[in-house]
Design a protein around this nucleic acid. Structure first.
Lengths: 160, 160
DNA sequence: ATGGGTGCAAACCATTTGCATAGGA
DNA sequence: TCCTATGCAAATGGTTTGCACCCAT
């Protein structure tokens, strides 16, 4: 999953600052830390999980700010809220087009790439629906770790 | 969208009763009415929306029972909880394999069939993930009604 | 300087739960 | 009869909001 080396984090942070300015969002210390943490996370963390990680470096931040910032960044398209059946909303920085597989047992969410799907057209019956912004696949099932048949071929990141 | 005539509703209710017995769930008046209402709904209603519809026929039913019943039926696979980014969970009776297009403006959820997608295999990288139970496409965007370019080719059912 | 952003605490609201009763098996 | 399901009400928990202060622009 580590398709990007951590060395380009500063590059991504710079891009984030630019995006903020373009959207006339103030570049605050809190927003930088929230984005940095999410950009480094590969487990689609919830607001609360993110908060627990950030508070170690930024002890004065409040959970409210994390909620508000995630909502703001999502509204501006800088991050994505991920659809899940769980009670807590989860977020990610979209590094490239990908899809999700969610385990019904443990909630682990695995990214995967499916280029040939990305290139297909939606069926003709949907051509009149409207403007399609995202086209994603969601797999649901039981991951190998939970079914006890872990083959070790898929990387799992625990949800802290 | 009305692929099934209402005349087969009694048939579906009978099948539902059988499924309940098979799962050793008691066939109560409330469960029958909740299922009947959901089986006739084409707008993926939330628990509350469903409750407001059912109470007209069954004035003594409580919202809790609707919540509890939806959770129970979902757990047994008799109905499906639909993934959405909204705060309220929405449900449906799966009549046949289909996918969803969700309008970011009005929340309308449109079903569509995509047989060729249903027949495709997931990418080889996911073969080791685990047991896949569902494989669904979610489209997000702006429906024609909201963008003001309604062509009238897609049927929209308002919520509530 | 000034308007958006933050922290705090209180409010909100969808959903869940404890408990006594009612009704299906 | 026995145990599950229901109704009521209170609790829960993720998320949002009002308000005063602070800080990036």
């Amino acid at each position: 999953m580590n398709l990007q080396a951590s060395s380009d984090l500063s590059e991504r942070m710079a891009a984030f600052e630019n995006s903020c300015r373009k959207a006339s969002l103030k570049v605050t210390h809190q927003r930088l830390e929230i984005y940095r943490e999410l950009a480094q996370a590969y487990d689609h963390p919830s607001a609360e999980v993110l908060y627990r990680r950030i508070i170690k470096r930024l002890p004065t931040i409040s959970l409210d700010t994390v909620y508000r910032t995630l909502a703001t960044l999502n509204r501006h398209g800088l991050i994505s809220r991920v659809q899940t059946g769980e009670s807590q909303a989860r977020y990610e920085v979209e590094r490239f087009s990908h899809h999700h597989a969610v385990c019904r047992e443990c909630g682990a969410m695995t990214d995967f790439i499916w280029t040939s799907f990305d290139e297909t057209q939606v069926p003709a019956t949907m051509s009149g629906w409207g403007e399609i912004i995202k086209k994603n696949v969601v797999l649901e099932g039981t991951c190998c770790t939970c079914s006890g048949k872990d083959s070790g071929t898929i990387f799992h990141m625990p949800l802290s």
